[in-house]
Amino acid sequence: MSDPEPIEGLARDVDACCRLTGEFTLRSGQRSTEYFDKYLFESDPALLRRVVARMRDLVPSGTELLGGLEMGGIPIATVLSGETGLPTLFVRKEAKTYGTCKLAEGPDVDGRRITLVEDVITTGGAVRDATTRLRDAGATVDHVVCAIDRSPEVENPLADVGLEVRPVLTKAQLDAARTTS
């Protein structure tokens, strides 16, 4: 994969691809008049690779496993794994109640440093839940990389659980790309 392109072009293309307007209820229960349908860029292989090219440099050194959150973080983590050579975990919202009963499919997490991979963060509820469960299983989780951080610009929605959020794009960058198009 070549060096990442300027962020403005990526922001413009992601915004044009996945920003929807209307009435939406977010995972947090909040109501919104806009929604970033991440599956629209995740299902476009060229655009997904462009997002991952920017995300690659956001993965902190010392990361042993990439933890893709169900469901939107999984395709991003899979492509990112291919680019970084780091193994991937597939982190469920809830542990299975059958078979292995695992929360995270893949290598054992105990004693391992995991960087979570998410698609869109607003309040961070899914990331918070996964962090707590992975830490309970013995993992060290200090960072999350995400494609889009739509939380308020000066706020880290995951500070309460000690996570650093490293986004490829922020809502402010997507808004700026929209106004310059």
Score class of each variant (00 low, 15 high):
Val117Ala: 06
Met71Phe: 10
Gly62Asp: 03
Ile76Arg: 01
Ile121Lys: 08
Asn156Ile: 11
Ser61Arg: 15
Phe90Ser: 07
Leu103Glu: 05
Asp37Leu: 10
Asn156Asp: 09
Thr97His: 06
Gly99Ser: 12
Leu103Cys: 02
Gly82Gln: 09
Ala130Pro: 09
Ile74Trp: 07
Cys146Ile: 08
Tyr39Thr: 10
Ala130Gly: 13
Gly62Cys: 06
Ser32Gly: 07
Ser32Thr: 14
Leu103Thr: 05
Ile76Trp: 00
Leu48Lys: 06
Glu94Leu: 09
Val109Asn: 08
Met55Gly: 01
Ile148Ala: 12
Gly82Ile: 00
Ser81Gly: 15
Gln30Ala: 10
Val109Lys: 12
Gly68Pro: 06
Ala16Glu: 10
Thr180Pro: 06
Gly162Asp: 04
Ser32Ile: 13
Leu26Gln: 13
Pro60Glu: 04
Ala177Gln: 06
Ser181Asp: 10
Pro167Cys: 12
Lys171Ser: 08
Val145Gly: 00
Arg54Met: 00
Glu153Gln: 15
Leu20Thr: 09
Pro87His: 01
Gly85Ala: 01
Pro167Ser: 14
Leu69Gly: 05
Met71His: 01
Ala159Ser: 14
Gly138Cys: 07
Arg49His: 08
Gly68Trp: 11
Ala126Glu: 11
Arg19Ser: 04
Ala139Thr: 01
Glu155Gln: 12
Gly29Gln: 14
Gly82Glu: 06
Lys102Gly: 10
Met55Pro: 02
Leu169Tyr: 06
Ala139Glu: 03
Ala139Trp: 02
Glu42Asp: 11
Leu40Thr: 04
Gly124Lys: 02
Thr63Ser: 13
Thr33His: 11
Arg27Glu: 12
Cys101Thr: 01
Asp175Gln: 14
Thr115Lys: 00
Ile76Gly: 01
Glu23Val: 11
Leu47Phe: 10
Leu47Lys: 07
